[in-house]
Amino acid sequence: MFPKFLRSTLPSMKESPGVVDLLGVLAYAELSAYARMTEDAATLAPSLADRAALSELAVTEYAHFRLLRDRLAELGADPDAAMTPFVGALDAWHAQTRPTDWLQALVKTYVGDGIALDFYREAARLLDPSIAKLVDEVLVDEGRSQFAVERVRAAIEAHPAEAGRLALWARRLVGEALSQGQQVASARPELALLLMESQQEGHTDISRLFAKLTEAHNKRMAAMGI
């Protein structure tokens, strides 16, 4: 049997702390992505066209944050309180994976953010359809893949030696992302429950989830040519 909050038509904060945790961590992730992309666009983009493209993605991330914030309020939760438990882990992730150049920023946008968003998407798989639909909406790619893949592949074609450097960077990103995910899940039991229940019945070992996330990460690496 799944917990009641996985079957309710409109989960309340009291019935479903895991839902509030999920929307809270996702809201802060989107707000952080907006701030980071804005900074990277201003400081690392090599051209005005690149700056504009990344800034446009940042605006989309902020719109997603607003959707999540509003849904938290509808559920009777304080959005700030829902996000606060995750500030430390997400800020630490960004501090530990701060890109030093444009290509690193692109790899982080596609590979690093990608595996983190896969983590949240898995947690929403068995939720009430209205919540699952919202999560899918805010996790839509919005051109992130094409934007990053095209530019990184072009850079590697022009300078093949970049492939090795960026591959090392991507491995560091996935290691830090999985570590962050484990910290978040262990600190918030209700959120961990969502993640475990999203796997096949009888397989509640969260390591199974991380293996699945790593597989998706490897596909992204291949798409970028690293």
Rank of each mutant, 00 (worst) to 15 (best):
A116F: 12
M196L: 02
W102Q: 10
A63D: 11
H94S: 06
A170I: 04
A161L: 08
A49L: 08
V140E: 13
S12T: 15
S207G: 05
K4W: 00
I131N: 11
T43K: 15
A52R: 02
L10H: 08
D128C: 15
H94M: 06
L166K: 01
L134M: 08
A163M: 01
D50H: 08
A154W: 12
A187K: 07
L209V: 05
A42M: 15
P99R: 05
A95R: 15
L103Q: 03
S207M: 03
A35M: 04
S47Y: 06
D91V: 03
D128H: 14
L117I: 12
P85V: 03
T9Q: 01
A63V: 09
A158F: 01
P79H: 06
Q96W: 10
R144P: 03
L23M: 12
A81G: 04
L106R: 00
L57D: 02
T100Y: 00
E162T: 10
V174L: 13
I206T: 07
R36E: 14
T43G: 08
A81S: 05
H94C: 04
K212P: 15
L6M: 12
M224V: 08
P11H: 04
V138G: 10
A223S: 11
H217S: 14
A27I: 10
A105E: 09
S8N: 01
L75P: 00
W169H: 11
P85S: 05
D80F: 10
M1G: 12
E15K: 05
G225W: 08
P129H: 10
W102C: 09
L103R: 01
K212V: 15
L75D: 04
A123P: 12
A29I: 01
Q199G: 13
Q183H: 09
D50P: 09
I156Y: 07
R172M: 14
E150S: 09
Y120L: 07
T100P: 01
P17I: 04
G164R: 00
G88K: 11
G76H: 04
L168H: 13
